[in-house]
Measured scan of single mutants.
Amino acid sequence: GATAVSEWTEYKTADGKTYYYNNRTLESTWEKPQELK
């Protein structure tokens, strides 16, 4: 079936920290989303 993983994109900030952005909800988070675990 369809999965929600594709909504999240992993980015890195200029200082090398990783964060996650959800293209559907426009939410961003420092925590790894449940969908990616």
Rank of each mutant, 00 (worst) to 15 (best):
T3D: 14
E27L: 05
G16F: 01
E7W: 06
E27I: 04
T13H: 04
K17L: 10
E35W: 04
Y20H: 01
A2F: 10
E10M: 06
K17T: 07
A14S: 11
K17Q: 08
K17E: 10
D15A: 06
W8D: 01
E35F: 06
T29Q: 12
N23G: 06
S6D: 11
P33R: 01
G16S: 02
E27G: 03
T3H: 13
Q34G: 11
N22P: 01
T18F: 07
A14T: 09
G16N: 03
N23S: 14
W8S: 00
L26H: 15
K37T: 15
E7M: 05
L36A: 08
T13N: 10
T18A: 05
T9K: 10
K32T: 10
S6R: 08
T3Y: 05
E31V: 11
P33V: 02
P33Q: 02
L26K: 15
A2W: 05
N23I: 12
K32R: 09
R24G: 06
V5P: 12
D15P: 00
E31D: 10
G16V: 00
R24F: 11
G1A: 14
V5S: 13
T3N: 10
K32V: 10
R24D: 06
G1S: 11
T18L: 09
S6C: 15
E7I: 05
P33K: 01
G1E: 13
N23A: 11
T9I: 13
N22Q: 00
S28L: 15
G1Q: 12
E31T: 09
Q34L: 14
A4N: 12
D15F: 05
A4P: 11
L26I: 03
Y20D: 01
N22E: 01
N22L: 01
T29C: 07
E10W: 04
R24I: 15
T3V: 12
V5T: 11
W8V: 01
Y21E: 05
Y21G: 02
D15Y: 06
P33G: 02
Y20T: 00
T18V: 13
L26N: 15
Y21N: 02
P33M: 02
S6A: 11
A2H: 13
T3A: 13
A2I: 12
T25N: 02
E31K: 04
T18S: 10
T25I: 02
L36N: 08
N22Y: 01
Q34F: 10
T25G: 00
A4C: 15
Y21V: 15
G16K: 02
T25Y: 02
S6P: 12
T18M: 08
K37P: 09
K12S: 07
L36W: 05
L26M: 15
K17G: 05
G16H: 02
L36D: 08
G1V: 13
K37W: 12
T18G: 02
K32A: 08
R24A: 08
E31L: 07
K32Q: 11
V5I: 13
G16A: 02
E7V: 06
K32E: 09
E27K: 05
S6K: 08
S28N: 05
K17R: 15
K12A: 07
N22R: 00
T29G: 03
K17Y: 07
E31W: 04
T9F: 10
T13K: 02
Y19C: 09
Y20E: 01
K17M: 06
T9H: 10
D15H: 04
E7Q: 06
S6L: 07
G1T: 14
T13A: 05
E7F: 08
Y21P: 02
K37Q: 15
G1K: 11
S6Q: 10
K17N: 07
P33H: 02
E10K: 04
K37E: 14
A2G: 13
L36R: 05
Y21M: 08
T3C: 14
S28F: 15
T29I: 08
T25F: 01
K32H: 04
T29D: 02
E10G: 01
S28A: 11
N23L: 07
K37D: 14
P33I: 03
A2S: 12
Q34I: 12
E27T: 06
T3F: 09
V5C: 15
W8Q: 00
A2N: 12
A4V: 15
A2M: 13
A14Y: 04
R24E: 09
R24S: 10
R24L: 14
E7D: 13
Y21H: 07
K12E: 07
W8M: 01
A14R: 06
N23Y: 09
K12G: 03
E31P: 02
T25H: 01
A2L: 13
T18D: 04
W8A: 00
L26T: 09
Q34E: 15
S28V: 15
E10S: 04
P33D: 03
E7A: 05
Y20F: 06
L26P: 01
L36C: 11
Y20L: 01
E31R: 04
N22A: 00
E35K: 05
S28D: 03
E31N: 06
Q34H: 10
A14V: 12
K12R: 13
E10Q: 05
E35I: 06
K37S: 15
V5R: 10
N22V: 00
E27S: 03
E10Y: 03
S28H: 12
A14I: 11
A4G: 13
Y21F: 14
Y21W: 08
Y21A: 03
E27Y: 03
Y21Q: 08
E27D: 04
A2V: 13
P33W: 03
T29S: 12
D15L: 04
P33L: 02
T9E: 10
T9P: 00
K17F: 06
E35R: 04
L36H: 09
L36I: 09
T13L: 04
T9S: 10
E27Q: 09
G1L: 14
A14N: 08
K32I: 11
E10D: 02
G1F: 13
T25V: 01
P33T: 02
N23W: 14
E31I: 10
Q34S: 12
T9D: 06
T9V: 15
K12T: 13
Y20K: 00
L26Q: 14
A2R: 13
T3L: 12
Q34Y: 09
E10R: 03
G16P: 00
E35Y: 07
T25R: 01
E35P: 04
A14G: 07
K17H: 08
A14Q: 09
Q34A: 14
N23F: 09
Y20W: 15
L36P: 07
N22H: 02
L36F: 12
T25D: 02
G1H: 14
E27A: 04
E35C: 13
K37F: 13
K37A: 15
K17P: 01
T18Q: 04
A4M: 14
E10T: 07
Y20V: 00
T13S: 07
G16Q: 02
G1Y: 09
Q34K: 09
E7P: 06
V5W: 10
S28M: 15
N23V: 11
L26F: 14
T25L: 03
D15R: 04
K17V: 09
A4W: 05
R24P: 02
E10V: 09
Y20Q: 00
T13Q: 04
K37M: 15
E7G: 06
T13P: 01
D15S: 08
